[in-house]
Amino acid sequence: KTVEVNGVKYDFDNPEQAREMAERIAKSLGLQVRLEGDTFKIE
């Protein structure tokens, strides 16, 4: 899975870890996480 923030992509081998990281980043920035294919987009 991939986490994308402001056009910057971070790859994770563990999908659960990617989801947790995406949620943590989104919460700290006051944004939403949206799953698009294999990418968690933070917008």
Rank of each mutant, 00 (worst) to 15 (best):
I42Q: 00
A18E: 00
L35K: 06
E36D: 13
S28V: 13
Q32Y: 10
E16V: 10
R19V: 05
E36A: 05
F12Q: 01
K1C: 15
L31M: 13
K41A: 03
F40M: 05
Y10I: 09
N14Q: 07
L31E: 05
Y10G: 00
V33G: 03
G30N: 07
Y10W: 09
L31V: 13
R24P: 00
S28Y: 14
V8Q: 10
Q17Y: 08
K27S: 12
D13T: 11
E4L: 13
R34Y: 11
K9R: 15
I42L: 12
A26I: 02
R34W: 09
R24T: 11
G30F: 03
V33L: 11
N6V: 04
F40W: 15
R34K: 12
E36W: 06
L35P: 04
P15E: 14
D38S: 08
K1H: 15
E23L: 11
G37S: 04
K27W: 09
E20L: 11
K41M: 09
K9I: 10
E23A: 07
E36F: 06
E23N: 10
R34D: 04
Q17V: 11
T2F: 15
F40Q: 00
T2E: 04
F40S: 02
V3F: 04
S28Q: 15
D11H: 15
L29M: 11
T2Y: 15
P15R: 07
G37D: 07
F12A: 04
K1D: 03
D13Y: 06
G37T: 03
D11W: 15
V3N: 00
E20Y: 09
K41N: 03
V8W: 08
F40N: 00
M21T: 10
R19E: 06
Q17G: 06
E4R: 05
R24F: 12
G7P: 01
Q32D: 09
G37P: 02
D11K: 15
L29S: 04
L29P: 02
R24S: 10
G7M: 03
L29I: 04
Q32K: 14
Q32L: 12
L31R: 04
D11F: 15
L35C: 11
Q17C: 15
T39N: 07
D11P: 11
G37K: 06
F12C: 14
G37Y: 06
M21L: 10
I42F: 10
A18R: 01
T39D: 02
I42M: 05
T39K: 06
A26Y: 02
K9V: 11
R19P: 00
F12N: 00
Q32T: 14
K27I: 12
K41S: 04
G7E: 03
G30Y: 03
K27V: 10
Q17L: 13
A18W: 05
T2P: 02
T2S: 14
V33W: 14
K41D: 02
Q32H: 12
V8T: 10
T2Q: 09
N6H: 11
M21V: 13
N14W: 07
L31H: 06
L35M: 08
L35I: 13
S28I: 14
P15C: 15
I25R: 00
P15F: 14
E36P: 00
K1Q: 09
N14R: 07
E23V: 09
N14M: 07
E4T: 08
Q32C: 14
E43A: 09
D11V: 15
V33T: 04
R19K: 11
T2N: 08
E20C: 14
T39P: 01
E4S: 10
F12P: 02
Y10N: 02
V5Y: 14
I42P: 02
R34A: 06
T2R: 13
D38R: 03
F40T: 01
R24I: 11
V3C: 11
G37L: 05
Q17T: 12
E43K: 07
K27N: 13
T39Q: 04
Q32E: 12
E16H: 10
G37N: 09
L31Q: 06
K9C: 12
V3A: 01
K27Y: 10
P15A: 13
G30S: 04
L31C: 15
G7A: 03
S28F: 14
I42K: 01
G37R: 05
S28G: 08
L31Y: 08
I42A: 02
V3I: 10
N14I: 07
E16L: 09
A22M: 03
E4D: 08
G37V: 04
T39I: 14
A26H: 01
D13K: 09
K41W: 08
I25V: 10
E20K: 11
M21I: 09
L31W: 12
V5A: 04
E43N: 09
R19N: 04
N14V: 07
V8A: 07
K41L: 12
R34I: 13
S28K: 14
P15M: 13
F40L: 10
V33N: 02
D11M: 15
G7T: 02
T2A: 12
A22N: 00
E20S: 08
A18C: 09
V3Y: 03
V3K: 01
I25A: 04
L29G: 03
T2W: 13
M21S: 06
F12L: 05
A22H: 00
R19F: 10
G30C: 12
S28W: 15
A18P: 00
F40K: 00
L31T: 07
S28R: 14
I42H: 01
E20W: 08
G30T: 01
T39R: 04
E43H: 09
F12V: 05
K1G: 10
E43D: 12
R19D: 01
N6A: 08
L29C: 12
K27M: 13
I42W: 01
N14C: 12
G37C: 12
F40D: 01
L31P: 00
D38H: 08
E36K: 03
L35D: 06
E4M: 13
E16I: 10
A22Q: 00
Y10H: 07
R24C: 13
E36M: 05
A18S: 01
D13P: 10
K1V: 13
I25H: 02
E4V: 13
Q32M: 12
N6R: 06
G7N: 05
G37H: 07
V3P: 01
E43R: 06
K1P: 08
P15Q: 09
A18V: 02
R34F: 10
